[in-house]
């Protein structure tokens, strides 16, 4: 299996179709995996593929514009790429996707169980819950950096003239940042869970995204990343839209 994968990557270089291929290699601890930037056939020998390869490699595409890129992609990466193509961030002829099947943990019976629990709380209970979670936020922006959809050339959080919200490590600024991040992913987040995995202080960011995902599904019957052809939810309108303001 791994040889087959390595050969596919080598073939991309042999036929000069790519500048770089994104894959996985073994980390120093000998157990975990870490991302691998493959620049030539020799590098391809370091490729590994197993259940430790958890990262969403599509997050590196934002910094590889203008290059021809190969990417070893599991289901989440494929969905992320679909959104990026949909949003005209990439041209499909510059991208060579090598799909791989992952060893999946069994899917939960109710994907939105944790969201329903939060929905059942009163607004003030919910605010208390999130304030407690966001009070631990250290504003490292790992959630943003690891997200394939966070490709703004200058993030609102980094702007200083004007500063849109407090850069200080305070609950107010933390709340603004985390809510802004989640809202900017409405109809775009494919629920790969990388933000939550990357968060060093264990904030359940995925629940915030899943709540919006659930709303988008219920209100618009829309699922991000399910097809390249569909129009991005918040960048299009429908003549049959039931509300008047858009007509």
């Amino acid at each position: 299996m791994i040889e087959e994968l390595r050969n596919k990557v080598k073939e991309l270089f042999a036929s000069k179709r790519v500048d770089v291929v994104l894959g996985y290699q073994r980390a120093v601890d000998g157990v975990s995996a870490k991302p691998l930037f493959i620049y030539n056939q020799e590098d391809a020998e370091r490729l590994v593929w197993d259940s430790y390869c958890v990262y969403n490699l599509a997050c590196y595409l934002k910094e590889l514009a203008g290059k021809k890129v190969g990417i070893i992609a599991k289901a989440c990466d494929v969905k992320s790429i679909a959104v990026l193509l949909q949003e005209n961030q990439w041209k499909s002829q510059d991208l060579f996707v090598i799909e791989v099947e992952e060893v999946k943990p069994s899917a939960p019976a109710d994907k939105y169980e944790s969201v329903r629990k939060l929905e059942a709380k009163s607004a003030s209970e919910r605010l208390k819950f999130w304030e407690e979670e966001f009070s631990r936020c250290i504003r490292c922006y790992a959630c943003r950096q690891v997200c394939p959809m966070c490709y703004c050339p200058r993030c609102v959080a980094d702007q200083s003239m004007p500063a849109w919200f407090s850069r200080a490590n305070s609950l107010k600024g933390n709340l603004s940042w985390n809510v802004t991040r989640a809202m900017h992913l409405a109809g775009r987040c494919i629920d790969c869970g990388e933000c939550e995995r990357a968060c060093p202080v264990g904030i359940p960011l995925r629940d915030l995204n899943k709540k919006i995902e659930k709303d988008v599904k219920e209100l618009f019957n829309y699922e991000a990343g399910s097809s390249v052809e569909q129009k991005p939810l918040l960048s299009c309108f429908d003549k049959n839209d039931p509300t008047d303001f858009i007509k």
């Binding site: 870490k34 991302p35 691998l36 930037f37 997050c59 590196y60 250290i138 504003r139 490292c140 922006y141 790992a142 943003r144 950096q145 690891v146 990357a198 060093p200």
Partner: peptide, 16 residues
């Protein structure tokens, strides 16, 4: 360049 290629440019390492 190779050593830093996978870096996400986040603040985890410096802040912690």
């Amino acid at each position: 360049e190779r050593a830093s290629s996978a870096c996400l440019s986040c603040g985890v390492c410096t802040y912690l």
